[in-house]
Structure formats: structure tokens, C-alpha cells
């Protein structure tokens, strides 16, 4: 087999592995990895948006904080899904933030891709997050675990 064909084979294996991983994890809500174990010294009493220049009222029950960017088709689909959830569940608000305009928050929260959706409790603490386009039922199930 030629070098080029080995490269093709390696690419195919990489793509299959990554595609399977993505299809499994996209839109699934989870606690941020390492959020429980790391930095016990930091008292997370402040809202994740404190000092971010994003001064909007949070939802009485939960806030869906969505990070979006310009070159991002699934961000638009996520906006639609979260909008549907807000219409369905009382006390929940949707807040969409342009990641490129708020890079400090993005770094502080370890948001690595868009769309990333954080579920915040009424005090603005992160409860769980999902990257990629979530299904409406995934958001509803994650919200059910908040209260």
C-alpha cells in the first residue's frame, strides 16, 4: 500500500471515531468536568456573569445561557430549541451571548466551542452544560433536575 493510501486509512479511522464521539455527546447536559474536584478555595457565591458586563435579570427558576459565534450554523438551531423551551417552562429565560464579544467570560467558564449552553440556577451558578445542538427533550430533562 502506498503512503497516500495509509494517510487515507488514518483519516477514515479518525473521522469514524470522532463522528461516533460527537453524535453521542452533542447536546448532552453534564456537570463541567473537574468542577467538583477543582479549586475548592474559590467560593462560587457569585454568578458566573458577575463582572462580565452582561447585566440582565436571571430567570426565577433557571437561565439558559447560550454562547454563540458568527460562523456557527448550529447556534441558530440551538436558539430556536431554547426559545421553544422558554415558551414551555415558566420561570426560565434564554440569554444568548456572543462568545467573540465576551472572551473573558468564555475563558473563565472554559467554553471551547459554540454553541455551548449553560443552565444557571436563580443565583447564576452553573448547574450543568451541553455543547453542540441539544434536543428539546434533553434541555427539558436537564431543567427538571435543577429544582
Amino acid at each position: 500500500m502506498t503512503t497516500g493510501l495509509w494517510v487515507v486509512l488514518a483519516c477514515l479511522l479518525l473521522v469514524v471515531g470522532f463522528a461516533v464521539y460527537r453524535v453521542r455527546t452533542d447536546g448532552r447536559f453534564h456537570r463541567r468536568r473537574g468542577a467538583e474536584a477543582g479549586t475548592p478555595a474559590a467560593p462560587t457565591t457569585a454568578s458566573v456573569l458577575t463582572g462580565a458586563g452582561i447585566d440582565v435579570p436571571l430567570g426565577d427558576r433557571a437561565t439558559l445561557l447560550q454562547f454563540s459565534s458568527a460562523f456557527c450554523a448550529p447556534c441558530r438551531a440551538t436558539r430556536r430549541v431554547l426559545g421553544e423551551v422558554v415558551d414551555l417552562v415558566p420561570g426560565v429565560t434564554h440569554l444568548e451571548v456572543d462568545a467573540e464579544q465576551h472572551l473573558e467570560v468564555v475563558r473563565a467558564l472554559h467554553v471551547l466551542r459554540t454553541p455551548t449552553t449553560l443552565i444557571l440556577d436563580p443565583d447564576g451558578h452553573e448547574v450543568s452544560r451541553a455543547s453542540g445542538l441539544p434536543a428539546r427533550d434533553q434541555v427539558l430533562a436537564a431543567l427538571a433536575r435543577v429544582s
Partner: peptide, 27 residues
Amino acid sequence: YVATGFALVAALLNATIGLCLGCEVYL
């Protein structure tokens, strides 16, 4: 080989799962 391979991986991910490159790399 490496550069063409990267282009192939990106194209295949786009064709199979509709990977959005702009969403991945920017941040």
C-alpha cells in the same frame, strides 16, 4: 500528506455529521 489529510478529515466530518468548523476552532 499531512495538510491534504487535514483537509480530507474536515471534508469527511462535514459530509457525515455536518461538522461546523467555524464553531470549533474560533474559541
